[in-house]
């Protein structure tokens, strides 16, 4: 077994044991901090409900990832093709990052409604910048030797972009995609907190309001597990599909 997975499982088990000891020693009320055992029981009892809401969040995250990565890639390529686009759009892009996504969530819900679109949009907004930035960084850092060779070979600009600059930027793009896999669930859950009737974020708020703290924790851990699995799957996919590139 991979050493990272082993150390992850060991750390998780250690934390659960520590948590159980704290709860047993302090006698903290279960509506403040339920024991891991109670959280486990709640998870099993509500597994259908949790799974149903997880599917909603997962769908939002996957759509958010696909659209966010595509938009980020298109923007980065556009910056590289057109200096004018870069001149006008880059400051806007950086300024957009100065506004916390949390602050935008209520407006997005107002404009796009309580359904899935506002959550997918939140996820897109949160991952668009890291993907654009990582990919564009890669596109501007093509090794000088390759650029020299292409100049001597009288390369056409677009062919240079697609045959050399883009493939050379793949490792940077993949770093951006891995970051996006971590950020996208955050966007989706923020969207669910602001206004929704489905998803793990909604379930957590609902459980919290009804003082079902054990269910809230069960939903929270499901979210964590889902995000980690997504990250793991994307990492494995990158390693397998992009072997010939110097992958991160």
């Amino acid at each position: 077994m991979n050493s990272a997975i082993r150390s992850g499982i060991a750390a998780m088990l250690g934390l659960i044991i520590l948590w159980q000891i704290i709860v047993s020693l302090t006698g903290v009320p279960r509506f403040i901090l339920p024991s891991p055992y109670l959280v486990g029981v709640s998870f099993i009892e509500n597994r259908g409900l949790i799974f149903e809401h997880m599917l909603v969040t997962l769908t939002e995250v996957i759509f958010g990832l696909i659209i966010g990565i595509a938009l980020g890639m298109i923007t980065a390529l556009q910056f590289e093709i057109s200096p004018t686009a870069k001149f006008f759009l880059k400051p806007v892009l950086i300024f957009s990052q100065a506004i916390p996504v949390f602050a935008l969530a209520p407006v997005l819900t107002l404009w796009l409604g309580y359904g899935m679109i506002s959550k997918v949009t939140m996820a897109v907004l949160i991952i668009y910048f890291p993907v654009t930035s990582a990919f564009h960084d890669g596109l501007t850092r093509t090794p000088q030797g390759l650029l020299d060779l292409s100049k001597v070979m009288q390369a056409k600009p677009l062919r240079l972009l697609f045959l050399i600059k883009l493939p050379a930027a793949v490792p940077n793009l993949l770093s951006g995609i891995r970051l996006a896999a971590v950020y996208a669930p955050i966007g989706a859950v923020i969207g669910e907190w602001v206004g929704s009737s489905q998803g793990l974020g909604y379930l957590m708020l609902l459980a919290n309001g009804r003082v079902k703290t054990d269910l809230m924790f069960a939903a929270l851990f499901t979210l964590g597990f889902m995000s980690m699995s997504l990250y793991g799957l994307i990492t494995i996919w990158i390693k397998l599909a992009f072997k010939r590139f110097d992958t991160p």
Partner: peptide, 16 residues
């Protein structure tokens, strides 16, 4: 222009 072939110290191969 266009009449030069160039070889550098690094082989400058595209790894992919």
């Amino acid at each position: 222009m266009g009449r030069i072939g160039y070889m550098a110290q690094q082989d400058l191969l595209l790894e992919w």
